[in-house]
Nucleic acid binder design. Structure first.
Lengths: 229, 229
DNA sequence: AACGTGTTGTTAATGCGATGTTAAAATGAA
DNA sequence: TTCATTTTAACATCGCATTAACAACACGTT
């Protein structure tokens, strides 16, 4: 309910344009964070709580399309607008296939960009964006900020990783959370070892919930996990 | 329920362009209706069941913006794309203020228009909270993303393959889905063993639907299967 | 109708890859 | 260093898609 506020991540290496954008959008009451290359942007994205992205297509370290692909794995619904100097059709198609919501050719008009952002965000469904800081899981209370799991006043302290994994399961309670999504969002990469690591944490979490049998973390082979409670 | 199908109203007085658009979109499996002036378009809109609009800005009888305003009163959420020959900023702003979702300057590329339509319609909330991927099959509710089959709140979990096969049958409910099509799409090859495997999965799915006799998966020898419900 | 051939229905056995779990190594912060 | 935490390794277990095997069926031919 409180998260109806736009929180935009911008990835743009031309800092002149970048700062201009930041200033303009902030003047309109929008939260903005600027990153100057693809990798920084992705790390920023993992850490932050963004609900909108604007990516330059050409970026150092990782180009806008690759960045979009990874971001879409973590949050498939997040809207992305691409900025590009070129007006190539192939580029546009590529962007749309990845799931671009819009495409703007530089130089562009700031007001028009704002209009496009608004047009898209008006359709946004913020409803399940955040499940609050504290999440009820069966008889447990999970506080992500405090890394704590409270069971009848008995407080179990979680490690960062444990909390991160549990948070992802919590956000989509009773829904399948894909392995790929968790791995990309938390480990940043989706390889064998990260995968095994995730399994270890799932195993740990299950133990923590052992005292309330209504809480289970179920596996869907080859797909992911579901937190049921 | 399964209004996941696009039904587009086009208002365009240049009939060359109009018919071209209709033909192109219909070839992509989209329902389209063309009107050649603003008033006809609005009457058509009231009578029909459209979920997407494309308006030329300059139209006889009633211009695109006025048309949009009236349409938005009837259905405030309906997406509208404007077409215009002019690339005037004022026009664009006016369009966005009315609630345009996009803005395309003529001449434009048909593929790009399709991409933009898709980008917008993908964000569309066709159903209620549960974002659209759910399919009603008799008394069952099939959720492909969650690999679940809900019967009166009783949830049966599906495996990846089961869900994939069921999805293909669902997409063409009550229509023949060719063996070849399923095999190529899911198994990637159309040989004897893949075929037998498919038969095994069909058999499993039939069992899952045993509790509602109105749901049947019928075989068409040498051709494929039909999901009837 | 009876036959024969190829197709489909169904169940069960198999084998492999994915996951569960625990413990040991690595990492890294204090 | 020590301690907490995460990663890697090693082994146990489980679930799933495939394969096999046989029964039932469809359909064209005689």
């Amino acid at each position: 309910m409180n998260e109806n506020k736009l929180n935009i991540l911008i990835a743009e290496d031309d800092l002149n344009l970048g700062f201009l954008l930041v200033e303009f959008l902030e003047s309109r009451g929008i939260d903005v964070k600027l990153y100057r290359d693809g990798e920084l942007a992705f790390n920023g994205f993992k850490g932050g709580d963004f609900n909108f992205c604007i990516f330059d297509v050409m970026l150092p370290k990782m180009d806008g399309f690759s960045l979009a692909k990874k971001v879409k794995i973590v949050d498939p619904k997040i809207p992305i607008i691409f900025l590009t100097a070129r007006a190539m059709k192939e580029d546009k198609m590529k962007g749309y296939n990845i799931g671009a919501d819009d495409y703007i050719t530089k130089p562009f008009d700031e007001d028009e960009l704002l209009c496009r952002i608004m047009a898209i965000s008006n359709r946004l469904d913020f409803s399940n964006a955040t499940c609050g800081k504290i999440c009820q899981i069966g008889k447990y209370e999970f506080d992500f900020e405090n890394l704590s799991l409270d069971f009848n006043g008995q407080i179990k302290r979680l490690t960062t990783r444990e909390a991160e994994v549990l948070r992802m399961l919590c956000i989509s309670k009773k829904k399948v959370v894909k392995r790929e999504q968790i791995l990309t969002a938390i480990w940043g990469e989706n390889d064998y070892f990260a995968g095994r690591s995730l399994d270890v944490f799932i195993s740990k979490l299950r133990k923590y919930f052992a005292e309330d049998s209504t809480v289970t973390i179920d596996n869907i082979t080859k797909v992911g996990f579901i937190l049921n409670c």
